[in-house]
Amino acid sequence: MKLSRNIFKLLLIFWIALGAGWSGGILYVSQQYVDRLLHPACVYLMENSPFGFEDCSVSLPSGERLKGWWHPPRNGVAVLLLGGHGSSRDSLMWEARLLAQHGFGVLSVDSRVCAGLPATLGVRESEDAQVALEWIQSQPEVEQVAILGFSAGGVAGIRLAARNPQVVAVITEGNYPSLKEEVLDTPPAVPFSLRWQLQHGVAFLLGIRLGMPIEAIRPIEDLEKIAPRPILLIFGEKEALDTRALDQYQAAKEPKTLWIVPGADHGQYKDKAPQEYEVLLIQFLNQLSQIQP
């Protein structure tokens, strides 16, 4: 009997140690992933400001400066461009040139990653966008400010517009509906599988790094707060299910427009339908120049 009890204790210790080691391994791998996620490389495709744009910078409350390019408006309407995860100021340069050609002002700024700060998937980026918005409003030619955001930049734009009525319109492209879904359901994993365990490890550690549970980051619930200001939602056909494009459209209130680009995946909207993209974008923004601020 004594031998049996000793064997049982040894087996119990073994399984506890094995479980602790496995859990530690899951957390270690998850931590490595979160570190890479929050510290992506800041890549510049252009060294100098494009023709018609001037260098500028926006000072954050923490002291860091976000470098950017500014083009003043001819019609009183300026658009704040917010690129995707870890983007630099040239990531939406095609859109910037298009808007400038049609008389709109444009501010395109680096993401916080380029200033040495960690990315936060649109959370703290919305606070950075508030500072950029105030910079635009200080320019003498500006009467109204709209936002165009892609992916995490779309999340930042939605979060800012939901809390600041001075944003007169929002264009968002390929944004996630909630951070929890983005982490745990894209793609969904078999319960208790290795992928499932890693996803939950990432969710736990990401919440710690962000200083809030990921369940609290729900752009889909912020959409309705933007009304009665107009919102344009753009998604690719291949990402529409994962991003819950139709649900996000239903969550928003009028005036609202949804465009699901046929055959497009994340970020391929203007590549798959360049003419339609230009027409829709400019028509949507032209309505603002006809509205008195």
Rank of each mutant, 00 (worst) to 15 (best):
K225V: 00
A146Y: 00
M1A: 13
I147A: 02
G154Q: 03
E127P: 10
R97C: 08
R5E: 15
R36G: 09
G25A: 06
I217Y: 07
E47R: 14
L288W: 02
L184T: 07
Y277Q: 02
L81V: 06
Q31K: 13
L18V: 12
L194G: 07
S30I: 06
N6E: 14
S138W: 06
G21Y: 03
Q290D: 14
A251S: 10
F235V: 01
T172I: 00
L223H: 08
L10M: 13
F51V: 14
A252M: 02
V34K: 01
D128L: 00
P228R: 06
N175K: 04
A161L: 06
P165K: 10
S151I: 02
K272G: 08
S87A: 15
L80P: 11
V58Q: 03
G24F: 06
I26W: 09
S138D: 15
L258E: 01
P177Q: 03
S108L: 11
I158K: 03
H85V: 11
W135F: 12
L81M: 11
E237I: 03
L184W: 00
G236C: 04
K270H: 14
A245P: 04
W22V: 12
I217E: 12
D247V: 02
A203V: 09
L66Y: 06
P50V: 07
T172G: 12
R244N: 08
R163G: 05
V79A: 05
A240I: 05
S193D: 07
R74L: 11
L3E: 14
F8A: 15
V190F: 10
E47S: 12
G157H: 06
I16F: 07
G68I: 05
T257E: 11
S289C: 07
F192Y: 14
A152M: 15
Y33C: 13
L18C: 03
S151C: 06
A240R: 02
S88G: 09
D35W: 08
K272M: 15
L160F: 03
L232H: 01
S108C: 08
F192V: 15
V79Q: 01
A41C: 05
V142F: 05
D55L: 10
L82M: 05
E47D: 14
L223R: 00
K272S: 11
S111K: 04
R112V: 02
L121Y: 01
